[in-house]
């Protein structure tokens, strides 16, 4: 039990951040005609901001299932790495069904908390993080979705910017931090602007636009600026 409550205590900053982020997601969904129920279903099944945002965005642009699947998969590939390193910290006696439950809640924030633990990570500790973070994620989505239905049109329109603003708040500190990251982000931006404004190229399917820009930028980063081994 102490390990569970230790997790809960560590989840408090995550909870605050998640309510704000998923609120922005709920608002985004509703300003684009997605019902509150569907927004909440996306939040339960995906539990990730960038991935589910891309999923909804592509759904609205009537992208194919394959486009949606591949795009969201690429966005979520980082979780694979996180789970690989988290798996090193789980005791080998932990049964598969508990591992399957822990897997549901591996998010950027839960991972960074868990990996900074000095002791071995227990299922109870992970539950202490994952349960509050999931509740916060669903609560924020619900609040955002329903707030959208009562706000006046001009306020609602202004709310459409929130999720994008949050994304800027996430990637800008990385941009500032290193030259390779600056180059990768600028390449990604060159692609996204070209896909919007260059004739012919801008007819490319929405999912491919995201995939091509992201993959080319990240590949150039990986080839020319490989990260330091730890």
């Amino acid at each position: 039990m102490t390990s569970f409550f230790n997790g809960v205590r560590k989840s408090i900053p995550i909870v605050i951040g998640y309510i704000a982020a998923s609120f922005a997601f709920g608002v985004f969904c509703c300003t684009n005609g997605v019902t509150p129920l569907v927004s909440i279903l996306f939040s339960i099944t995906n539990l990730t901001s960038a991935g589910q945002f891309a999923g909804v965005k592509l759904m609205l642009e009537a992208a194919s299932l394959i486009e949606i699947g591949v795009t969201v998969l690429i966005i979520n590939l980082r979780y694979f790495l996180m789970s690989v390193s988290l798996s090193q910290r789980l005791d080998s006696s932990i049964p598969t069904w508990k591992r399957m439950l822990i897997g549901y809640g591996v998010t950027d924030e839960a991972f960074s908390v868990a990996i900074n633990e000095t002791e071995n990570v227990t299922p109870a500790f992970m539950a202490g993080i994952i349960i509050p973070e999931t509740i916060a994620w669903l609560l924020g989505t619900t609040l955002g979705a329903f707030a959208s239905t009562v706000l006046p049109a001009n306020v609602l329109n202004a709310c459409g910017i929130a999720l994008y603003a949050m994304f800027i708040a996430i990637f800008m500190p990385n941009f500032v931090q290193s030259t390779p990251m600056k180059i990768v982000i600028i390449i990604a931006l060159v692609f996204s602007f070209s896909f919007e404004y260059v004739p012919v190229v801008n007819q490319c399917p929405a999912g491919l636009k995201i995939i091509i820009g992201t993959v080319v930028a990240a590949l150039i980063g990986a080839i020319f600026f490989p990260i330091k081994e730890d």
């Binding site: 690429i74 590939l77 980082r78 950027d108 990385n174 990768v184 990604a188 930028a217």
Partner: peptide
Amino acid sequence: YVPSAVLAT
């Protein structure tokens, strides 16, 4: 590099 690239895109 993927998360920052995809969010920027």
